[in-house]
Amino acid sequence: MQKSIKIEVKRYIPEKQPTPFYQEYEIPLEPKWGVLDALTYIKDEMDGTLSFRWSCHMGVCGSCGMMVNGQPALTCATFLEEYLPGPIRIEPLDHFRVIRDLVIDTDDFMGKLKRVKPWLIPVEEKPLSEGENKQTPAELAAFKQYTLCINCLLCYSACPVVGLNETFVGPAAIALAQRYNYDSRDQGQAERHDVLLDHGGAFDCTLIGECSRACPKHVDPTGAIQRYKADGALEYWKRLILPRGAASK
């Protein structure tokens, strides 16, 4: 029985050297450890300078996404046993700027997310006195899947378009735009069309499908984007042909 496993971590320490390098750690192989437990062990027992993000340790916070042997994964939900006999190579999520070691800069994503306006945009504000906005189970089912996104950014790392085209708004942002587009309480489609029909919008997606394979929450951003392409193409022609303001409100 194997007693230890080798972990190769891609490190970036800007004050030490301008380019990343790999560092190896040999850690004891505990049967039920996740990759995140291994990193925690390294930080606690071997090398306190190692930096990485984590929070909930149960696959809902979306903080601990990293490349594990070249695949984007939530390290809390990825187990050492799956990679025997090792070594396991851990790198920061692909296509993101790296701040330090395994910590990526999410500012670009946050900016993109904000642009698709992922919040309810009602035509008129309903006063609180009129009570809640009711939805039927069918109306909820129309968008519920897209609410499960935890912004872990695995889909951005999986997507070559994100890596090749910096302006692409990306899988999660479009899935979250669709989460509101399909919500019966929302009337903000026109504002989101402005972003999603533009350069860097949904039509920059070339349908590789890797985002949906990487998604730990089965949100299916591929589906969200393709469904948007169908709606967006219709909207494009409406805007071209119909008089001003007659297209979707």
């Binding site: 800007p14 301008p18 692909d94 296509h95 790296v98 800069d105 500012d107 890596g163």
Partner: peptide, 13 residues
Amino acid sequence: YKRFRPERYKPQM
């Protein structure tokens, strides 16, 4: 971001 450690490593595909 510029304040403390503004260096970023940009990976190439």
